[in-house]
């Protein structure tokens, strides 16, 4: 599509970052599929009933499925930890700086921009302009913040859910069981929270802004796109002489 115009492109991502994104996506997919297969009571009706049955049948028992889920989860955590350790300065720190929504004002601003963007989707508030955005727009910043915290929570609660019963004697100390139960709540709540954002994330990537999807494959993106969507970033890039 874009090659007919051969617009000016700029490299915004390294290969390893792209790899990490798709690795993350793959892990999430696997963990969601296996996780929904494991947790199956009416108590946590996460998936249609056929799914746990299918998955548990496929893996010949829920204990095997638990192992698959745990191994993928552990790999996910391990790769992330490794990535953070190796690329903290070059990638992670800038990303965190760009993404974390830490003040109420920032949150308010981001929420407003997100609302306007969403409203445009449904053809309302046409006269209101989306305020100029940085490298990550309001919605992305909010989702990113959420994902970072939810991922930490998922990793921690997941580790306890898996290792807790092996390490602690729940019968001896009621607290261990209580932590388990709340870890379960935290685990599920985090997944839901991320999923809510993920729906929008995928929609925009697949339907609205195909180019951003391309960018997550090649690492390059057109300057026009940035100019149009991320005005502040464009300014920044210009200042830095990158475009």
């Amino acid at each position: 599509m874009s090659d007919t115009n051969t617009p000016q492109m700029v490299k915004v991502r390294e290969k390893k970052t792209i790899f990490l994104h798709w690795f993350n996506a793959t892990c999430w997919l696997l963990l969601l599929l296996s996780g929904f297969g494991m947790i199956s009571g009416d108590f946590v009706r996460l998936a249609p009933a056929f799914w746990p049955e299918f998955m548990q049948g496929l893996f010949n028992g829920n204990d095997n499925l638990v192992w698959v889920h745990a191994i993928v989860g552990l790999a996910w955590v391990a790769v992330f930890v490794l990535f953070v350790l190796l690329n903290f300065k070059s990638v992670v720190w800038p990303f965190l700086k760009n993404v974390l929504v830490l003040t109420p004002m920032a949150a308010l601003r981001d929420t407003w921009s997100m609302v306007v963007t969403l409203a445009h989707l449904f053809g309302i508030m046409k006269n209101t302009q989306v305020p100029p955005q940085g490298r990550y727009n309001g919605a992305q910043r909010l989702l990113g913040t959420m994902i970072i915290f939810c991922s930490l929570l998922l990793a921690a609660s997941g580790a306890y859910l898996f290792f807790g019963p092996m390490v602690f004697s729940f019968a001896d100390d009621a607290l261990c069981g209580a932590i388990f139960r709340w870890a379960l709540v935290a685990h599920a709540a985090s997944v839901f929270l991320v999923l809510v954002g993920l729906v929008a994330h995928i929609y925009f990537a697949v339907v609205e802004e195909r180019e951003s999807l391309e960018a997550m494959k090649s690492g390059n993106i057109s300057v026009d796109f940035i100019k149009h969507h991320n005005e502040l970033w464009y300014d920044e890039l210009k200042r830095e002489g990158k475009v």
Binding site: S40, G41, D42, R45, L46, A47, P48, A49, F50, W51, P52, E53, Q56, G57, G61, N62
Partner: peptide, 16 residues
């Protein structure tokens, strides 16, 4: 969400 999952979850477990 799980309307497709009828009959009940409990019964579905039988086959796992």
């Amino acid at each position: 969400l799980s309307i497709a999952g009828l009959p009940s979850q409990a019964l579905a477990r039988i086959n796992a």
